[in-house]
Amino acid sequence: MKFRKICAVLLGAVMVMSMAACGGNSSETSTDADAAGSGDAKRVCFVARASADTFAAWMTEEMKKAAEGYDDIELTCVSGEGDDNTENGLLEDCITKQYDLVIVQSNNNAAQAPYVKNLVDAGIPVITTNPTTHQSDLDGSDDDSVMEGTGTVDADPVAQAQVSAERAVEEIPENANVVVLRGPSGNYHAEKRREAWDTYFFDKRDDVNILYEDYANWNSDEAMTLMESWVQAGKHIDAIISMNDNMAAGAIEAIRGDSDYIKDGKASFLAYGVDGTAQGCLLIKEGLLTSTALQSASELAEKNMEYAEKVLNGEMEITEVNDYVDAPEINADNVEEYIQIYVDNGEISDDGTLAAE
């Protein structure tokens, strides 16, 4: 299946449980190199949440590209593979290997928070990104400020979901049956996007019936499995509300061959995502995804590397790092503009397919 082939390629996009360097200036190849680094370059580790997560894989590739612009930084990329114990082990490993700075993309904010604190206590500067780690994640309080001693580069998950939720108020038919695909439990972006859908859609459309709702953990295969089960139950699904593009893509793939949902290339359902990935944009062009909000992995990566260098060079304190990217809406009216961006950066081929195919 074409979709599964795409996913298989993406699975290799992030280094799995490896401390091999991914920046263009690194020569880390052994335990001794991990401990000592090479030359005067500062050693930075990016801990991604999962290689099966399309956005995390995209961000890892963008981190690699961004790192090429810094001769004074060696970047290593590792993946927690969507497992809290694995990611926590990698964070502990960053202390053992004495990295100069660590950039953390948590799978579960509360689960990773104590390990982020361990890094801070060890004197290692930490930037949390996509999502931010908050003080409340560490101590269970109501304090939503950035965790003490850390910096952040992120996007606003409420704004990301709001752009599609507000248009869905007008688009989703009366008394519609909808399904909701959620990201990992405990993940800040996953929870806040879901809350935004309550605020900006469900609270305004009490006629809409949530037929099914479940966690697909940002994963397309999990979303596909859920959707296959929900469709078999017999009730027509009028809209797919997904907390990211990857899960929306999996759900759409589950009904791609079902004439009750797609006939003569025309969809009889609506679908909403977040991230504005290359895959999401192609689905919008195809008429199968209604809208999404861009979360630019490129911009996040560039900002992370920019602030990492400034911190390492003493130009700013880690706690002064606090920056957020915008969340513009992508829909059928403007999708070609974003597709061209992906063609220009090589993620979409000139023939209009994902470059990973």
Rank of each mutant, 00 (worst) to 15 (best):
R43T: 13
L181A: 14
A248V: 12
D206G: 00
G123C: 11
L101F: 09
L288Q: 02
G346Y: 02
P157A: 14
R205W: 06
L75W: 03
N331E: 13
R193E: 05
A57I: 08
M243E: 11
I330P: 02
G149T: 00
A122D: 09
D264W: 10
W197L: 08
E68R: 08
D83V: 12
Y307I: 04
E315R: 01
T277L: 11
L226Y: 13
V47L: 07
A21K: 01
S298N: 15
Q105I: 06
G276I: 06
I240H: 06
G82T: 05
K192R: 14
L75R: 04
L138T: 04
L294H: 02
K65L: 11
E315I: 07
F201K: 08
I127C: 06
N109T: 09
P131D: 10
L226P: 03
N130H: 07
S141F: 05
V14L: 10
D154I: 05
E336P: 09
D238F: 09
A110P: 00
M15I: 00
I95W: 03
E74W: 10
A36C: 12
A223W: 02
S291V: 09
I255D: 07
A52Q: 04
A13S: 05
I330L: 03
A356Y: 03
R193W: 10
M243G: 12
A278I: 05
G280S: 10
I124W: 00
V321P: 01
M15G: 00
S18E: 01
Y99P: 07
I284Q: 09
F3R: 04
G352T: 10
